[in-house]
Design a protein around this nucleic acid. Structure first.
Lengths: 334, 334
DNA sequence: CTGTTAGCGCGTTCAA
DNA sequence: TTGAACGCGCTAACAG
């Protein structure tokens, strides 16, 4: 037996399909007893409106997409959780689009903009060409999180990476360190991430402001991953003339630094201080001192922006460009 | 200007809509030059088929849902990544349904079974009533991962938790420990997780087989979360008569044990050995010795089962019930 | 090989 | 207040 359609319900209730539709969509233009009769028919038949048909005639899909690289990176997951958290209370489904290359990004976006698969899109930390997306479909709501390129047309949330780099560096200086190293990531360049670069800039600025030299032998940019970080950190630390503190631009890299320190028999923080960036959950496990960015909250905020846009039908003017706060979390590696 | 439809393309190319549909769907029943003409029209107009319409007429949604609790838990994320990894090469989208309570689970599944929003469903570690789902829609492909209830109607992947508990315990015994503690989780009971219980069973069995007593003062079941685990572990460890090793049934709990040990000035593994379960990525960071279950791979395998089902149209008979392997990962906490 | 036509299930007129 | 009819954009079946 086929799954029942609105027509079956209408027949069963002895009314027209229009009436059933009205009941379904909560119109008040239906007499109470008619409504009841329809509701009963719906129940009796176990009817549930077909989503595709609804989409087709209504023009809405009730799904929102998240376009994100490396969605398994803790920082992305935590943001995703924030998004999910607020969408959970709505009718919107969340669909994941994982991106591995800029070519894939372009293809994906191109298709998504036109196919009407989603009512809106979150774009996480990816270099979109907003002119392209906008001209492809100016009506599609997009919220950009952690923009790697400067975005003008879409509301977006971001952090001040340079400032974050400063904070970490200043914290190290305050703790008496003057010999500072840096470890950043060099993700598959194509994505053009600049966050590590910016944090490094903050690092440099602060040292210079303090009249300290930036020793490039103590600075490395490695591939993303704990093992790479461990090797890179090792290279820094085996030098006879080594730094007493390292700022790792990402928590996962900081773990690599901790590994290397342990490999070399260096005590943390006595022999080597380490500060990370992000404050992912694992940072708590490892008692890593780090710069916290509020990942979960940024997910929530961006979802609220999206819902606003979807509800009102026009892009939110408030919080157009939100800079999320940063703060030092003191644990035991500095 | 409206987004172009298949009809516009047909007109532009001077052919019928049927022909356009055929080239869209890669039928070989089209002369080469006609195909080329259509393709050109498609390009010229920037046409892309509307997904809802395609769903409605074709009866397929090209999206697969993942129904999962706590999707931010590392173990779920890693499995999800495995699923995503194989789906990425296909036309299927992945939609996330996060579940917080059994009531929500029932509602969600009820709707999902009927609304035709998805072509298939992964159900992760959730106690479904397969009679209900099956009678609601016997045709919907479902793959169950980590079933908490015994599943008969659907293909499923699981691990042998009792065996895993044995392995961990034996490993501890082999390393000379005879005073063993246990820490498991007691998740919001409603979900009826039994994995910690089963691992505990393995723990008990092994001790008994070795002629060792199970000291219940050394065994605790706490809420899920590092902080709870830390407190629980502390309670175990402050006893004058404390165990020399603890088996934590989940890696995240093991981190709590490590915290507690560190709080109490106990050296690991000299004063206290700790072994976890899962081998999530953070376990590497923390150098936690643990029982590895292949989370990513189990995601991949389940996705392959799903695709098989979707492609052939009938439930896969091979690997109907797959027991994933377990292994000890030796690091430095035992 | 290709054009035409009939649904797919629902929302939305437009009359009644 | 309600029923009937049309259209959303596409696929599939059927002629030609």
């Amino acid at each position: 037996m086929r799954t029942p359609t609105i027509r079956d319900v209408a027949k069963h209730a002895g009314v027209g399909v229009g009436t059933v539709s009205r009941v379904l969509n909560g119109s008040d233009q239906v007499r109470e007893d008619t409504r009841k009769r329809v509701l009963e028919a719906i129940n009796a038949l176990g009817f549930s409106p077909n989503s595709a048909a609804r989409q087709l005639s209504g023009g809405k899909t009730f799904t929102i997409g998240v376009v994100s690289p490396f969605f398994t990176f803790p920082s992305f997951v935590e943001r995703l959780a924030g998004i999910q958290d607020v969408l959970d209370g709505t009718d919107y489904d969340l669909t994941l689009y994982s991106i591995r290359s800029t070519a894939q990004l372009r293809r994906r976006l191109g298709a998504l903009m036109l196919q009407n698969r989603v009512d809106g899109l979150f774009i996480l930390a990816l270099p979109i060409s907003e002119d392209e997306t906008f001209s492809a479909n100016p009506a599609l709501p997009i919220v950009v999180v952690d923009d790697t390129v400067h975005v003008r047309r879409y509301p977006h949330l971001l952090i001040d990476n340079v400032r974050g780099g400063q904070m970490a560096t200043e914290y190290l200086l305050q703790h008496g360190h003057t010999r500072l190293g840096f470890l950043g990531d060099r993700v598959d360049e194509s994505f053009g991430f600049t966050s590590a670069q910016d944090r490094f800039k903050g690092f440099q600025n602060t040292l210079e402001a303090a009249g300290l030299p930036v020793n490039m032998n103590w600075c490395q940019f490695c591939l993303h991953g704990e093992d790479y970080a461990r090797d890179a950190a090792r290279d820094i630390l085996i030098q006879p003339d080594r730094p007493t503190a390292i700022f790792a631009a990402i928590d996962t890299l900081a773990f690599g630094v901790l590994d290397a320190a342990s490999d070399l028999g260096l005590r943390v923080p006595e022999d080597l201080a380490v500060i990370g960036f992000d404050d992912i959950q694992a940072a708590g496990f490892a008692k890593l001192t780090t710069v916290r960015q509020h990942l979960f909250q940024s997910g929530q905020r961006s979802a609220e922006l999206m819902l606003d846009w979807l509800r009102t039908g026009h892009v939110p003017s408030e919080n157009w460009s939100t800079v999320m706060p940063l703060e030092i979390v003191e644990r035991s590696t500095v």
